[in-house]
């Protein structure tokens, strides 16, 4: 099963390499990974999506908690949560394809953020499966480049991950 694990950690050199190293060392899988400082400059928030059975994910969270730089760990998928990912996708767009891409884009509430006579660059925000669906819906349009941010997530309601 896919899990979204959020990690609050010290914003210090080497902290990220400990997390990434842990996954490699213990043979855990990383689907996506994002990391950036929080409103408190001494803390970073890292979100990792991984696939594993309950036992593996339990080990992942326990092992993450053991890292000295890690302050808090939560498996967002255990509760109600929101996940988002940003994708920018560059497409060949000429002739009648331009209109077709534009309408697919509207359906998915994507934005065209860069235009040349032969290309469109589309920005799309959403859960990862929506981004996948958009790529599938593009049909015959030819994709030149895709860049995805990786997933970040937050719990619904009052629940917060903070100190």
């Amino acid at each position: 099963m896919r899990h979204i694990i959020s990690v609050l950690m010290e914003n210090e050199p080497g902290a990220l390499s400990r997390v990434v190293g842990l996954f490699a060392q213990r043979n855990y899988n990383i689907e996506s990974l994002t990391v950036a400082p929080t409103e408190d400059g001494t803390l970073s928030r890292l979100t990792v999506t991984t696939i594993g059975n309950d036992r593996v994910v339990e080990q992942i969270t326990k092992q993450l908690n053991k890292l000295v730089d890690v302050v808090k760990v939560v498996d967002l998928s255990e509760g109600e949560h929101i996940e988002r990912e940003v994708m920018m996708i560059k497409l060949k767009a000429s002739g009648q394809m331009r209109a077709e891409i534009k309408s697919t884009c509207d359906i998915f509430r994507g934005q065209i953020i860069d235009v040349t006579p032969t290309t469109y660059t589309v920005q799309l925000v959403g859960a990862s499966d929506k981004l996948d669906a958009f790529i599938n819906a593009l049909g015959s349009a030819s994709i030149m480049e895709v860049v995805r941010s990786g997933v970040c997530g937050i719990a619904r309601g009052e629940k917060v991950l903070s100190l």
Partner: peptide, 14 residues
């Protein structure tokens, strides 16, 4: 040495 020792230490400092 930080990189080499990372998987075999409880923690390391530079």
């Amino acid at each position: 040495m930080l990189g080499i020792s990372r998987p075999i230490v409880k923690h390391n400092f530079s």
